[in-house]
Amino acid sequence: MYNFSKTSVEKLKGLHPRLVEFANKLLEVSPYDFCITQGIRSVEEQQKLYAQGRTLPGSKVTNCDGIKYKSNHQVHDDGLGYAFDIAILIDNKINWDSKNYIKVGNAAMEIMKKYNVEWGGNWKSFKDYPHFELIGGRK
Protein backbone atom coordinates (compact mmCIF):
# COMPACT_ATOMS: atom_id res chain seq x y z
CA MET A 1 0.00 0.00 0.00
CA TYR A 2 1.13 3.53 -0.75
CA ASN A 3 1.39 6.48 1.63
CA PHE A 4 1.10 10.19 0.92
CA SER A 5 4.23 12.28 1.15
CA LYS A 6 4.37 15.28 3.48
CA THR A 7 3.88 17.52 0.44
CA SER A 8 0.73 15.67 -0.61
CA VAL A 9 -0.64 15.81 2.94
CA GLU A 10 -0.04 19.58 2.95
CA LYS A 11 -1.90 19.95 -0.35
CA LEU A 12 -4.91 18.14 1.12
CA LYS A 13 -5.18 20.71 3.94
CA GLY A 14 -8.21 22.97 3.62
CA LEU A 15 -10.18 20.50 1.52
CA HIS A 16 -13.56 19.18 2.60
CA PRO A 17 -12.99 16.33 5.11
CA ARG A 18 -15.03 13.91 2.99
CA LEU A 19 -12.76 14.66 0.03
CA VAL A 20 -9.63 14.08 2.13
CA GLU A 21 -11.05 10.75 3.28
CA PHE A 22 -11.79 9.89 -0.34
CA ALA A 23 -8.20 10.75 -1.36
CA ASN A 24 -6.89 8.29 1.21
CA LYS A 25 -9.28 5.56 0.01
CA LEU A 26 -8.28 6.32 -3.59
CA LEU A 27 -4.66 5.71 -2.68
CA GLU A 28 -5.68 2.33 -1.20
CA VAL A 29 -7.45 1.12 -4.36
CA SER A 30 -5.18 2.73 -6.95
CA PRO A 31 -3.05 0.42 -9.06
CA TYR A 32 -0.37 3.17 -9.01
CA ASP A 33 1.25 5.37 -6.43
CA PHE A 34 0.36 9.04 -6.90
CA CYS A 35 0.95 12.42 -5.33
CA ILE A 36 -1.42 15.33 -4.84
CA THR A 37 -0.37 18.13 -7.18
CA GLN A 38 -3.12 20.61 -6.37
CA GLY A 39 -5.61 21.17 -3.61
CA ILE A 40 -6.60 24.73 -2.72
CA ARG A 41 -5.98 27.28 -5.45
CA SER A 42 -5.98 31.08 -5.07
CA VAL A 43 -7.97 33.39 -7.34
CA GLU A 44 -4.68 34.49 -8.92
CA GLU A 45 -3.62 30.90 -9.61
CA GLN A 46 -7.02 30.13 -11.12
CA GLN A 47 -6.92 33.22 -13.34
CA LYS A 48 -3.47 32.27 -14.60
CA LEU A 49 -4.71 28.78 -15.51
CA TYR A 50 -7.77 30.29 -17.20
CA ALA A 51 -5.52 32.57 -19.28
CA GLN A 52 -3.60 29.54 -20.56
CA GLY A 53 -4.66 28.92 -24.14
CA ARG A 54 -6.44 32.25 -24.21
CA THR A 55 -4.04 35.13 -23.51
CA LEU A 56 -1.08 32.95 -22.48
CA PRO A 57 0.59 30.20 -24.51
CA GLY A 58 -0.52 26.61 -24.11
CA SER A 59 -3.70 24.58 -24.25
CA LYS A 60 -6.87 25.49 -22.40
CA VAL A 61 -6.96 23.65 -19.10
CA THR A 62 -10.02 25.11 -17.39
CA ASN A 63 -13.31 26.85 -18.09
CA CYS A 64 -13.35 28.48 -14.64
CA ASP A 65 -12.13 32.08 -14.64
CA GLY A 66 -11.83 32.21 -10.85
CA ILE A 67 -14.28 35.08 -10.36
CA LYS A 68 -17.51 34.64 -12.33
CA TYR A 69 -17.12 30.89 -12.35
CA LYS A 70 -15.12 29.52 -9.43
CA SER A 71 -13.16 26.32 -9.60
CA ASN A 72 -13.80 23.72 -6.93
CA HIS A 73 -10.09 24.14 -6.13
CA GLN A 74 -10.93 27.57 -4.74
CA VAL A 75 -12.13 28.08 -1.19
CA HIS A 76 -15.91 28.31 -1.01
CA ASP A 77 -18.19 30.13 1.43
CA ASP A 78 -17.73 27.38 4.02
CA GLY A 79 -13.94 27.91 3.95
CA LEU A 80 -13.21 24.59 2.21
CA GLY A 81 -11.93 23.45 -1.17
CA TYR A 82 -13.79 20.79 -3.11
CA ALA A 83 -11.24 19.40 -5.59
CA PHE A 84 -7.78 17.92 -5.90
CA ASP A 85 -5.52 16.80 -8.73
CA ILE A 86 -3.09 13.90 -8.77
CA ALA A 87 0.05 12.88 -10.64
CA ILE A 88 0.76 9.18 -11.04
CA LEU A 89 4.19 8.01 -9.98
CA ILE A 90 5.85 5.12 -11.77
CA ASP A 91 9.40 4.30 -10.67
CA ASN A 92 9.28 7.52 -8.62
CA LYS A 93 8.74 9.63 -11.76
CA ILE A 94 5.59 11.50 -12.73
CA ASN A 95 3.77 9.77 -15.57
CA TRP A 96 1.06 11.61 -17.55
CA ASP A 97 -0.07 8.68 -19.75
CA SER A 98 -3.88 8.95 -19.79
CA LYS A 99 -4.21 5.14 -19.87
CA ASN A 100 -2.82 5.00 -16.34
CA TYR A 101 -5.21 7.69 -15.07
CA ILE A 102 -8.10 5.78 -16.62
CA LYS A 103 -7.02 2.71 -14.64
CA VAL A 104 -7.02 4.76 -11.42
CA GLY A 105 -10.43 6.25 -12.26
CA ASN A 106 -11.88 2.83 -13.04
CA ALA A 107 -10.47 1.38 -9.81
CA ALA A 108 -12.20 4.17 -7.89
CA MET A 109 -15.72 3.90 -9.35
CA GLU A 110 -17.31 2.33 -6.27
CA ILE A 111 -15.67 4.64 -3.75
CA MET A 112 -16.55 7.67 -5.87
CA LYS A 113 -20.23 6.73 -5.43
CA LYS A 114 -19.79 6.29 -1.69
CA TYR A 115 -18.10 9.68 -1.23
CA ASN A 116 -20.18 11.55 -3.84
CA VAL A 117 -17.08 12.36 -5.89
CA GLU A 118 -16.80 12.81 -9.64
CA TRP A 119 -13.74 12.26 -11.77
CA GLY A 120 -12.66 14.65 -14.51
CA GLY A 121 -12.01 11.64 -16.75
CA ASN A 122 -15.78 11.16 -17.00
CA TRP A 123 -16.51 14.71 -18.13
CA LYS A 124 -17.98 15.22 -21.58
CA SER A 125 -16.75 18.80 -22.17
CA PHE A 126 -13.07 17.89 -21.85
CA LYS A 127 -11.18 15.16 -20.08
CA ASP A 128 -9.31 16.14 -16.91
CA TYR A 129 -7.90 12.76 -15.91
CA PRO A 130 -5.93 13.90 -12.83
CA HIS A 131 -8.96 15.71 -11.31
CA PHE A 132 -11.41 14.59 -8.58
CA GLU A 133 -14.07 16.76 -6.91
CA LEU A 134 -17.10 16.55 -4.66
CA ILE A 135 -20.33 16.57 -6.65
CA GLY A 136 -22.29 19.77 -6.14
CA GLY A 137 -19.33 21.66 -4.72
CA ARG A 138 -19.65 24.70 -6.98
CA LYS A 139 -21.84 27.49 -5.71
Rank of each mutant, 00 (worst) to 15 (best):
107 A>M: 09
67 I>D: 13
34 F>Q: 02
68 K>I: 04
103 K>E: 14
23 A>G: 04
27 L>T: 04
49 L>E: 08
17 P>T: 13
66 G>M: 12
25 K>Y: 06
49 L>C: 01
136 G>H: 09
54 R>W: 10
77 D>E: 14
105 G>E: 02
100 N>F: 04
108 A>E: 00
30 S>C: 11
111 I>A: 02
35 C>F: 01
26 L>M: 06
119 W>V: 03
4 F>L: 14
121 G>V: 02
55 T>K: 15
44 E>A: 13
138 R>V: 11
42 S>A: 08
105 G>D: 05
70 K>Y: 06
127 K>D: 05
90 I>N: 04
105 G>L: 08
13 K>G: 03
78 D>L: 12
78 D>E: 11
85 D>H: 06
61 V>S: 15
110 E>A: 11
108 A>K: 07
1 M>E: 10
37 T>E: 03
56 L>C: 02
21 E>W: 05
27 L>P: 02
131 H>V: 09
61 V>Q: 14
78 D>M: 10
103 K>G: 03
89 L>D: 10
55 T>S: 15
1 M>D: 12
75 V>K: 08
38 Q>A: 12
4 F>N: 09
53 G>D: 10
106 N>F: 05
123 W>R: 14
60 K>H: 07
81 G>E: 11
58 G>K: 08
82 Y>H: 14
132 F>C: 04
16 H>P: 03
70 K>N: 00
124 K>N: 10
49 L>W: 05
102 I>W: 09
45 E>F: 00
10 E>N: 06
52 Q>H: 05
102 I>R: 09
19 L>S: 03
38 Q>P: 02
104 V>K: 02
28 E>L: 07
99 K>P: 00
122 N>K: 12
76 H>L: 09
90 I>S: 00
104 V>Y: 01
42 S>V: 11
69 Y>T: 15
61 V>P: 06
7 T>E: 15
37 T>N: 02
105 G>P: 00
128 D>M: 01
41 R>C: 11
29 V>Y: 13
109 M>G: 02
18 R>T: 13
37 T>R: 09
110 E>F: 10
104 V>T: 01
89 L>N: 10
97 D>E: 15
91 D>T: 00
24 N>W: 02
48 K>C: 09
27 L>F: 03
133 E>M: 08
31 P>E: 07
126 F>M: 11
79 G>P: 13
32 Y>R: 00
32 Y>A: 01
107 A>L: 08
37 T>V: 12
130 P>C: 07
40 I>P: 01
91 D>Q: 13
134 L>F: 09
48 K>F: 08
131 H>M: 03
130 P>E: 03
85 D>W: 02
28 E>D: 13
120 G>N: 06
133 E>F: 02
47 Q>G: 08
23 A>C: 06
70 K>P: 03
107 A>I: 09
61 V>L: 13
21 E>F: 08
